[in-house]
């Protein structure tokens, strides 16, 4: 394990010196920069993923990243290029095949086969590239070592482009995601928007994979956004909140991974899942309280006024 020998610094119980020590290594500073860039981008794209219920497509794109990365290493280029090439290509393919991004019916057998085959291809590339077996864990489960200044700059540029594109299509995309048929009737190009969004999702998945690895992308892509949507039904609040949660989770994960022998993917998924569970508990407690309050009132209120009603979609 690369993490075990490189980064097991002692924790001195003085946070200030600990952080100073940690940030005295350029690779840790780069990891924090990359983590912030990736978390913001992933939360923004993931917010729409949760809204559009395209988590299965996100999962497929994440899996596709593994053969991309291992193939890139086999050819001799940086794994990041492989992630981008395969994730973007897969996004276009999913957009072209109707129903491929859904997880049910006969299409799910097809998707399952394709996923397993692509993972097997990744394993083949790894086997052909001898002496690389230790790196498999880093590709699958994430690593924060060896991120260079150039890579951070590349990540930032890609994130800026994707965020700008997302901002440009944001309003019609939100409309098309919330009510597809009405948006189509109003002349919004629903299908083109869906394709554009899948390509943006592919780019975001490729970026997030570089920190969390192919198998744990869900942690940064979907969980912070889902947590934020549980906490607030208003896009203006929940979108920035998701980014905030994402950055907090990835920085905490990086810090914990630096001071312990366990990999960053474990911490990022654990923290993200923990906040998600807390948000769910908070939501169900609040719903129970408000419904009890509503039942206690003598005058019944119309359904539209009930506080939980607009946010009920996420839990339905």
């Amino acid at each position: 394990m690369p993490l075990a020998d490189a980064a097991t610094a002692p924790w001195s119980w003085n946070p200030l010196t600990d952080v100073q020590l940690m940030w005295s290594y350029p690779f840790m500073v780069n990891a924090f920069r990359a983590g912030a860039v990736i978390a913001v981008l992933a939360a923004a794209v993931g917010w729409f993923v949760v809204l559009r219920r395209q988590t299965f497509a996100a999962h497929t794109l994440a899996v596709v990243g593994f053969p991309g990365a291992s193939g890139a290493v086999l050819v001799g280029v940086a794994a990041g290029y492989g992630y981008f090439a395969f994730c973007l290509a897969a996004a276009v393919v999913i957009a072209l095949i109707p129903g491929a991004g859904q997880g049910r019916g006969e299409e799910s057998a097809l998707t399952g086969t394709v996923q397993a085959f692509l993972l097997a291809c990744g394993f083949l590339f790894v086997a052909l590239y001898k002496g690389f077996l230790g790196g498999v864990n880093a590709l699958l489960f994430g690593s924060f070592l060896g991120i260079s200044d150039g890579q951070v700059a590349l990540l930032a540029v890609v994130a800026a482009v994707v965020l700008a594109a997302l901002a440009a299509v944001g309003r019609p995309l939100l409309f098309a995601s919330v009510d597809t048929s009405v948006a189509a009737a109003r002349g919004v190009p629903v299908r083109a928007l869906s394709t554009v969004f899948l390509v943006l999702l592919g780019a975001a998945t490729a970026e997030a994979s570089q920190i969390t690895g192919s198998l744990l992308v869900f942690a940064l892509l979907v969980m912070p956004a889902a947590t934020a949507q549980l906490l607030s039904a208003r896009p203006v609040v929940s979108l920035p909140l998701g980014m905030l949660i994402g950055v907090a989770v990835s920085w905490l994960g990086l810090t914990a991974a630096y001071f312990s022998p366990y990999p960053v993917g474990f911490y990022v998924t654990s923290f993200a899942f923990g906040t998600y569970v807390l948000a769910r508990l908070w939501r169900s407690a609040r719903t129970a309280r408000s419904s009890r309050a509503a039942a206690g009132e003598s005058r019944p209120r119309p359904a539209a006024e009930r506080p939980a009603a607009p946010a009920g979609r996420a839990a339905a």
Binding site: N137, F141, L215, L216, F218, A219, V222, M223, Y262, P263, G265, F266, Y267, V268, T269, S270, A272, F273
Partner: peptide, 8 residues
């Protein structure tokens, strides 16, 4: 995703 993280 978390269970897989636990596996790691």
């Amino acid at each position: 995703s978390w269970i897989l993280g636990l596996g790691v």
